Simulated scan of single mutants.
Amino acid sequence: MRIIVYGSLRRKQGNSHWMTNGQWLGDHLIDGYELYSLGHYPGVVPGEGQVYCEVYRIDASTLGELDALRETGGEYKRELLQTPYGSAWLYVYQRSVSGRKRIVSGDWLQREAGE
């Protein structure tokens, strides 16, 4: 199975250790979503933009760990999207982004660059 990551799970980010057993397949831009800063991590919601992501192949155990990390408290819900690497899961933020800072570039690594 595959997963799309866009924030703290990306390479060289604070939670990238969760992807240690995953196989990086490549980078990808997803259309129809917007990226918001939730503080130390981001959230993606449906919208008018693009979001820069990385796609990984992972095993069921890693997906279970990520579900426990991301779906606890109802903050995120997984959606299946098509990528150049095949279908992949994306964690979509489920709460309001009202008052949150939108990362217009769509790239979490560029969040401080004049956003």
Rank of each mutant, 00 (worst) to 15 (best):
G14M: 02
G14K: 13
S16L: 02
W18C: 07
T20R: 15
N21M: 09
N21Y: 08
W24I: 12
W24T: 01
D27H: 13
H28L: 03
H28I: 05
L29V: 00
I30R: 05
I30P: 00
D31A: 15
D31W: 02
D31C: 09
G32Q: 04
L35A: 11
L35Q: 07
Y36I: 03
Y36E: 01
S37W: 03
G39Q: 02
H40D: 05
P42A: 14
P42T: 12
G43T: 08
V44T: 04
V44R: 11
G47D: 12
G47P: 08
E48V: 03
G49L: 05
Q50W: 00
V51M: 07
Y52P: 00
Y52S: 06
C53S: 10
E54G: 02
V55P: 04
V55A: 06
V55I: 10
S61A: 13
S61I: 12
G64S: 14
G64A: 12
E65Y: 08
L66Y: 04
A68E: 13
R70D: 06
T72N: 10
T72I: 04
G74F: 10
E75R: 12
Y76L: 13
E79N: 06
E79W: 01
E79F: 07
L80G: 01
L80P: 00
L80H: 05
Q82C: 02
T83F: 04
P84T: 05
S87F: 04
S87G: 11
A88M: 06
Y91W: 14
V92H: 06
V92Q: 08
Y93H: 09
Y93A: 13
Q94F: 06
Q94A: 09
R95Y: 08
R95P: 00
S98K: 15
R100C: 14
K101I: 15
K101W: 01
K101A: 15
R102I: 13
I103D: 10
V104N: 07
G106L: 10
D107E: 09
L109I: 01
R111F: 03
R111T: 04
R111L: 06
